[in-house]
Computed example of a mutant assay.
Amino acid sequence: MFNHEPEGYECPFCFLLDGGDTDLDDQRDIVLRTDLATALVAANWSRGNEAHVLVIPNAHHENLYDLPAEYGHAVHDAVRAVAIAMRAAYPECAGISTRQHNEPAGTQHVWHQHVHVFPRYEGDDFYHVAPEFRVSRIEERLPYAELLRRRIAAGRVLVRDPRG
């Protein structure tokens, strides 16, 4: 229902989940992986809110409309875990915003459901200015990924198993 994925689409998130690396995503970007969801530091950074995280279901579902409840719950739990870790690990982080886009008019660009988790800072004007995105290098992302992995592994963030 409401799908726009072109025929023959090669999903970069599925490729990453299968162990591959792309020009934008690297296995070292992954900060959390559960049976049903994965979180990774995003390659596209917006000025003033660098090192945001993407949370994706581990099975290919194009958008929110197609996402089975168990994957939705797992993605939400991973978003929460990342938000808590990000808030604690990033210096000066004063809050968190999340975004999830569906369909071309909703500015969805990758045809695999995902949620953006953005660190927020006092006076960052996140919603008041057009974002300026740039592609980060893996070397820039690694310190953030390591911070988040350590925070999550320290046991201060709990991710429940949605199956009970």
Rank of each mutant, 00 (worst) to 15 (best):
G155Y: 03
H76M: 15
R137P: 09
G106Y: 02
L24E: 09
D25T: 13
Y9C: 12
W111F: 15
A88K: 13
A43N: 00
I152M: 03
R149D: 14
S46G: 14
H73P: 04
H116L: 05
C11K: 06
P162A: 08
A89T: 02
I30R: 05
F133Q: 03
R160T: 11
V53K: 07
E132Y: 01
A42D: 07
V117G: 12
G8V: 08
D23K: 03
Y121C: 05
D35F: 09
L148D: 00
D21R: 04
Q113E: 13
A81F: 05
L158K: 13
A145C: 06
T22H: 04
C14S: 10
H116Q: 04
H60A: 13
I96L: 12
R28F: 02
Y127C: 08
E139I: 00
G20E: 13
S46F: 08
H112K: 05
I56S: 04
D18N: 09
D25H: 14
V75E: 02
E139M: 01
D161A: 11
V157C: 15
H4P: 03
Y127P: 04
L67Q: 00
P104K: 00
M86V: 11
H52C: 01
T98I: 07
L158W: 13
C11S: 10
D23F: 04
D25L: 15
T107H: 15
L16Y: 06
E92D: 15
T34M: 00
R134D: 07
A145E: 05
W45I: 00
R47V: 02
S136Q: 02
R150P: 05
A105W: 11
C93L: 07
D125A: 15
L32H: 08
L40R: 03
L16I: 06
E146G: 06
H61W: 14
T98N: 05
Q113G: 06
F13G: 00
R87V: 09
E92Q: 15
R163Q: 07
V41C: 10
F15M: 03
E122A: 04
E10R: 13
W45L: 01
M86L: 14
G48P: 06
A78W: 05
G20T: 06
V53Y: 08
V135H: 10
G19A: 07
Q108Y: 07
H73R: 14
G72M: 09
A85W: 00
N102F: 09
D25S: 14
A85G: 03
S136W: 00
H128N: 15
D26A: 09
H60W: 13
V117L: 12
C14A: 11
A153P: 06
S97T: 09
H60I: 12
E7N: 11
